[in-house]
Computed example of a mutant assay.
Amino acid sequence: MEKNNNQHAASTFHISEVAIINDPSVVPILFHEKKQMLLSLIIPEEKTIIDIKNITKMNPGTIKRHLDDLVKKNLAVQSRFFTNEFGIKMKYYRAVARKFLVQIEWPSSS
Rank of each mutant, 00 (worst) to 15 (best):
N6M: 12
H8L: 15
A9K: 15
A9H: 12
A10Y: 01
F13H: 14
H14N: 06
H14Q: 08
H14W: 04
I15A: 05
I15K: 14
E17A: 07
A19E: 03
A19H: 04
A19I: 01
A19L: 11
A19D: 08
I21Q: 06
I21N: 10
N22W: 04
N22G: 07
P24T: 03
P24M: 03
P24F: 04
S25F: 04
V26N: 02
V26Y: 00
V27F: 01
V27C: 02
V27H: 06
P28R: 06
P28T: 08
I29H: 02
L30G: 08
F31H: 03
F31K: 11
F31C: 12
H32E: 13
E33G: 01
K34T: 09
K34Y: 13
K35A: 15
K35W: 05
Q36A: 04
Q36V: 07
M37C: 09
M37S: 13
L39Q: 05
L39N: 06
L39E: 00
L39T: 04
S40M: 09
S40W: 05
L41T: 05
I42R: 11
I42M: 10
I43K: 13
I43F: 02
I43G: 06
P44F: 07
E45Q: 15
E45W: 06
E46N: 10
E46G: 08
E46W: 08
K47V: 02
T48I: 10
T48K: 03
I49R: 11
I50P: 01
D51I: 10
I52S: 07
I52G: 10
K53D: 02
N54C: 05
N54L: 06
I55A: 05
I55V: 15
T56L: 13
K57D: 10
K57F: 14
K57S: 14
M58T: 04
M58K: 11
N59A: 07
N59I: 15
P60I: 11
P60C: 06
T62C: 07
I63V: 15
I63G: 01
I63W: 11
I63N: 09
I63E: 12
I63H: 08
K64M: 13
K64N: 09
R65Y: 12
R65I: 11
H66W: 10
D68M: 03
D69E: 14
D69V: 00
L70S: 04
L70N: 04
V71E: 10
K72M: 03
K73F: 11
N74A: 13
N74F: 12
L75S: 00
L75H: 00
A76W: 00
A76N: 07
A76T: 11
V77M: 02
V77C: 04
Q78F: 03
S79I: 02
R80Q: 14
F81W: 12
F82V: 09
F82I: 03
F82H: 14
T83S: 00
T83V: 14
T83H: 04
T83P: 01
N84S: 07
N84W: 07
E85S: 14
G87D: 05
I88N: 13
I88E: 08
I88A: 06
K89H: 01
K89D: 08
K89Q: 12
M90Y: 00
M90A: 03
K91W: 09
R94H: 07
A95Y: 02
V96L: 07
V96H: 00
V96A: 05
R98F: 01
K99Y: 07
F100R: 00
F100E: 00
L101F: 08
L101T: 03
V102W: 02
Q103M: 09
Q103W: 02
I104E: 05
I104A: 08
I104Q: 09
E105A: 14
